[in-house]
């Protein structure tokens, strides 16, 4: 009996240590980002850094304004949500409530597969198919643009939105729907006026998750967005917060490198905000 207790304690301890590894990593990354990101902001000045419209990190008189990157990330994410959420949300309503079992299996499988495709593959397909396609469709000189990035991001966030919305919709108690149907409401009416409102917190969490995925993506957008540090235009070449760090990191040095860490810090703050929102919605959804 005693032996078993010792064993229990040891296992408990091991699991605790493993859990602490995650917490330790988060703390370490946060600490490192803050320490590495602050010096450049101090040197450049917070206002000039956040609201400067010109990024020329290797010029003789370098200028480090990241407003173009911030705006691009916000516009790009908003655009992806605008396209991705209606498609993802309606897909999830269909899959959770309407689809016959066979179709549901096939579509769910496809959605999972979409989630598993590496982002560099999205980027590659975007570069080879989407960018020339946009160029020909809209008769513009070059297709690599914010618009191309929005399309790629919209597709990339679909699986997160669909899977999480399905979970929320399926968690709605069947009695609600039965009551609505018994009162004479049509099925579609029931789904949109009873099930969806009941699952709204979960669906909101799905949207926030999509936002998080979109704002953090680097590889795929780097390959389709053109990467010139311009203020965002729908058909212009743009650079995101993530790609600003990724594209210059390998060659950087001195203040330029420090400024890249500062960009990463700004990105990290965005992600923290999004995570806080996600937790808020998830908590509310549980309380309901």
């Amino acid at each position: 009996m005693k032996k078993q207790k010792i064993f229990e304690n040891i296992v408990h301890g091991i699991f605790l240590i493993l859990g602490m590894i995650t917490v330790g990593c988060v703390l370490l990354i946060t600490l490192y980002l803050v320490l590495a990101g602050i010096p450049a902001i101090r040197k450049i000045g917070l206002y000039d850094f956040l609201f400067g419209a010109k990024w020329a990190s290797t010029a003789k008189e370098p200028s480090y304004g990241i407003l173009p990157f911030i705006l691009t990330s916000i516009y790009g994410t908003a655009g992806a949500i605008l396209i991705g959420v209606p498609v993802g949300f309606l897909t999830s309503v269909y899959l959770a409530k309407l689809a016959p079992a066979k179709i549901k299996t096939v579509v769910s499988g496809a959605v999972s597969l979409l989630a598993g495709i590496p982002s560099v593959v999205y980027g590659l397909v975007g570069m080879m198919v989407l960018v020339p396609g946009i160029r020909n469709l809209f008769h513009i000189p070059d297709g690599a643009s914010l618009f191309a990035a929005i399309i790629v991001l919209a597709i990339m966030i679909l699986p997160s939105i669909i899977n999480m919305s399905i979970t929320a919709l399926e968690a709605v108690p069947k009695e609600y729907e039965d009551a609505s149907l018994a009162l004479g409401a049509a099925p579609i009416e029931t789904y949109f006026k009873v099930s969806v409102p009941a699952a709204k917190s979960g669906i909101a969490a799905a949207v926030v998750l999509g936002v998080g995925r979109a704002i953090g993506e680097a590889m795929a957008v780097m390959m389709v967005s053109g990467n010139a540090p311009n203020l965002p235009e729908l058909f212009g070449s743009v650079r995101f917060l993530t790609t600003a760090v990724a594209s210059e990191m390998s060659y950087s040095g001195g203040l330029q490198r420090q400024a890249l860490f500062s960009i990463a810090l700004v990105l990290f703050l965005f992600i923290m905000l999004i995570n806080a929102a996600l937790n808020f919605f998830l908590k509310r959804s549980k309380e309901e």
Partner: peptide
Amino acid sequence: RQELTSTGDVITTVSQN
């Protein structure tokens, strides 16, 4: 118009446009 991060990307992009 585009700042790409590798030689290969430049060649691919020019070959596409």
